[in-house]
Design a protein around this nucleic acid. Structure first.
Length: 291
DNA sequence: TACATATGATCAT
DNA sequence: TGATCCTATGTAA
């Protein structure tokens, strides 16, 4: 078993396990929320040994070394770890960052920016876009720039999202990637969500009815919760893939449209179409998502 | 060995 | 819009 395949913490993994996916995913919001829970489970309650095998975070690691982890929090794609010193660790994984759980026995490669160890478990951070020791006001600044996070509690988030997205004149495909409108959506979910809603990605966000915006929020909450629970993105329903959905569903069967250009729509058999929006690829069904 | 690619975001032009 | 940062993987040469 390699580091990549180290099994997830059982408390958040009630069903079947698919260890291969654990820690191997490029993150959207669901990954970060899952990570926040798993880190707290493993690291809270005792002194944490922090180091920077790569050497690019030596000073930061020294400030965390020996501290207790008070709590762990996700805000969109941002991760904040609160330490007993009152300082915070701010992590953003970006495109290629990974935070992997490995047995403490396992030594770190020289690409590991930060290693957090307690008892027999270590968490190793590689390739992050952001890894910094910050203060609560710094966190406030980051959070203030974010729209509502579908995985966080709070009154009026649904309405806040509806108002905010309907105030945008950009294509919906672009608005969904805007972390200031909704925090945590990435390139997979933006295609999948619009398929689930039957909305063409080029439709202007401002043309969305209040009801549709509310529905979009509800579906997003539902999907991200599922993503967090399974620690992977699976948007399809059993009826549309002709088999029971389990944690071990092959990746190519897990989505309706993402990266399925030219393949038949799982609902109407028409070929899935491809388009570039906000500089990145999107996929959609021209029949199920009329313009 | 080399290159392309990736579920992100920022900064320069 | 394009260049850039960071890492790991799969495919091509």
């Amino acid at each position: 078993m390699t580091a990549l395949e180290f099994a997830p913490a059982p408390s958040h993994d009630p069903g079947e396990t698919d260890p291969v996916h654990y820690g191997s995913l490029v993150p959207e919001g669901h990954t970060i929320h899952r990570l926040a829970d798993d880190l707290a489970d493993d690291l809270a309650g005792g002194a944490v040994v922090a180091s920077s095998p790569q050497g690019r975070f030596t000073n930061g690691a020294a400030r965390l070394d020996g501290q207790l982890l008070d709590r762990s929090e996700a805000w969109g794609k941002h991760l904040f770890l609160w330490w007993s010193s009152g300082e915070l660790l701010h992590v953003h994984l970006g495109l290629i960052g990974k935070f992997r759980r490995v047995p403490a026995m396992e030594s770190a490669s020289d690409t590991v920016r930060l290693r957090l160890e307690r008892d027999d478990v270590a968490w190793q951070l590689t390739g992050p876009q952001t890894c910094a020791v910050v203060t609560p006001p710094d966190r406030e600044t980051v959070v203030a720039a974010l729209g509502p996070d579908p995985l966080r509690r709070g009154a009026r988030r649904r309405e806040q999202f509806a108002t905010s997205v309907r105030g945008s004149h950009r294509p919906l495909g672009a608005a969904l990637l805007d972390q200031g409108i909704i925090a945590g959506i990435g390139n997979v979910y933006r295609s999948e969500l619009l398929f689930l809603l039957g909305i063409h990605p080029e439709r202007r966000a401002s043309e969305l009815s209040a009801d549709d915006a509310g529905r979009l929020w509800d579906v997003t909450v539902d999907q991200l919760r599922r993503g967090k629970r399974w620690n992977r993105i699976v948007t399809v329903e059993s009826a549309d893939v002709g088999r029971r959905i389990t944690r071990t569903l092959p990746r190519e069967d897990a989505h309706y449209v993402y990266k399925r250009g030219g393949e038949p729509c799982r609902r109407c058999q028409e070929p899935i179409d491809h388009i570039e929006i906000a500089g990145r690829s999107m996929w959609f069904c021209p029949t199920c998502q009329p313009r």
